[in-house]
């Protein structure tokens, strides 16, 4: 465990809490993609299946439970809460699950470290996490005016991924024999998806303007 990894995990947690608090306080989920949230829930469940038998550390286990719990709450709010669900922008959140889930499923069957069910599900979760933000980015693009909290949510998520890359660089430099190609490549692709958003986020911040994405 190094500081980059720790900062990444905290930023990830913070991003989820920002979103959850926004929904809870405003009773609105306008601008939030339910597709992305459900994909993240699928990511966490398929990756953390090992929660009950593959104990690594209390730190990891607590984070796993918290990620699954908080993301479930977001999905619950968006689908079931009587006021929140009315604010869900379903007309714009039209990205198809299948476009992301099917290629990731096929890829995890073809490229994995070991051919068994849990390894394949874990690999699937790595691939799916890389692209799960896409419905959210598409929704932001469509609605143009991004409210501050939604913008901060995506920014924190991107920052979390950036810190994971620093963590890998650090580990590669300090741990002999450390390599994780599958995770690295997926992680680089995932972080790359945020670059465009980052550019506009920083521009808006520098000019103290409201974040607006170009069409």
């Amino acid at each position: 465990m190094n500081l980059f990894r720790f900062a990444g995990d905290i930023l990830h947690l913070l991003s989820i809490l920002v979103l959850l608090l926004k929904i809870h306080a405003t009773k609105s989920c306008a601008g939030i993609s339910l597709k992305t949230q459900e994909l993240y829930l699928a990511v966490f469940i398929t990756r953390y299946l090992d929660l009950f038998w593959n104990f690594h550390s209390l730190y990891n286990s607590v984070f796993k439970v918290v990620y699954i719990g908080t993301t479930s709450m977001i999905v619950w709010y968006m689908r079931r809460h009587r006021n929140v669900k009315l604010t869900y922008d379903r007309d714009h959140d039209t990205f198809r699950y299948l476009f992301l889930v099917a290629p990731c499923a096929v890829l995890s069957l073809l490229i994995n470290a070991r051919y068994n069910l849990f390894e394949i599900l874990w690999t699937f979760s790595i691939y799916l996490e890389a692209v799960a933000i896409l419905p959210q980015l598409v929704l932001l693009q469509r609605t143009k005016n991004v409210d501050n909290l939604t913008g901060n949510y995506v920014f924190l998520l991107g920052l979390y991924r950036a810190f994971y890359i620093l963590n890998w660089v650090y580990r590669f430099a300090t741990e002999p024999g450390y390599s994780a190609w599958l995770v690295w490549i997926s992680g680089l692709i995932q972080t790359g998806l945020y670059l465009d958003f980052f550019y506009y986020y920083v521009q808006a911040w520098k000019q103290s303007k409201k974040l607006q994405l170009p069409s």
Binding site: R5, D50, N54, N60, A113, Y178
Partner: peptide, 10 residues
Amino acid sequence: DQKSYDKDEL
């Protein structure tokens, strides 16, 4: 068995 470093991350 290979070391599965990758599984120690979240």
